[in-house]
Simulated scan of single mutants.
Amino acid sequence: MSGTVESAGTEAACRRPDRQGGTAPPEAPTGQLRPARGALLDAALRVFTERGYTDAGLAEIAARSGIRVGSLFQHYGGKRGLYLALWEEFREEQERRTAAALASLRGRGVEDPVAVFLAGARAYLEGVWDNRPLVRLLDQDDGPAGFDALRRQWDRAWVRRNARLLKVDERQRTGRVRVIVLTTVIGGAARELGDCADGTEAREIVDEVCGILGHLTARPG
């Protein structure tokens, strides 16, 4: 699960599913694409959540979205494309959310790397709670072929960006391990948030995790 990031564009290996392999359909005007794609993604999330990725059917997704199966293939190329588009949409939203939090902090003149990192971590975890149905789906061991490899690539990129936020030299093993530990704490908290009973419990977890991260990043003395 990707986390505290500064918007850095989309990694080459994680491009939009309808552009992989050079098979994307001709682009239509954005205003025409957005409603259909949004309806398909909403329907796909509901069906994937209820049935799991493996047992989800394209006919049911199309029926729930009110859009023909042929249009589904045109926009996303099939079930795998829908799943990866949901993942990418979540990542992009999280990037926007954390980037806004960092910009707000820096706009107030705060440049301390730890403070900036903690602000990004909080924004990311709050985004996890807001998107918990999708987070629970992505955390299941039931995704399309190759998804785990894509997620590992993104997680490595996430560690690199966190290292830049904290101004840690990744070339040094101790610095790299430190950032990996911090990133892993955020990822583990994200999984717990997906199972929270209510907003009060979720806020308690976010506060607790940010306290732990603050302790782990505190400078000696």
Rank of each mutant, 00 (worst) to 15 (best):
S65Q: 02
G22I: 02
A24H: 01
T54E: 13
R37K: 15
S65V: 05
R64E: 11
E50H: 07
R34A: 15
G38C: 01
S65R: 07
Y53A: 07
L33H: 04
R68V: 00
A36L: 10
P17T: 00
T10L: 15
R16F: 04
L33P: 00
P29N: 03
T23F: 01
T23Q: 06
G9S: 12
C14N: 15
L45A: 10
G57E: 15
A62V: 10
E11L: 14
R19S: 11
S65E: 03
E27R: 14
G57Q: 13
A12P: 14
L41E: 08
A63H: 11
E60I: 12
Y53W: 13
A12W: 03
R15F: 08
D55N: 14
L45V: 09
I67P: 00
R68D: 13
P17I: 00
G38T: 13
G38V: 00
S65D: 08
D18W: 02
A56W: 07
R19N: 09
P29T: 10
A56M: 09
P35N: 13
P29R: 05
A13M: 07
G38F: 00
A59D: 14
G57A: 14
R19G: 09
R51L: 11
A44M: 02
R68W: 03
S65N: 07
P26M: 08
V47E: 12
R16N: 02
V47M: 08
L41Q: 14
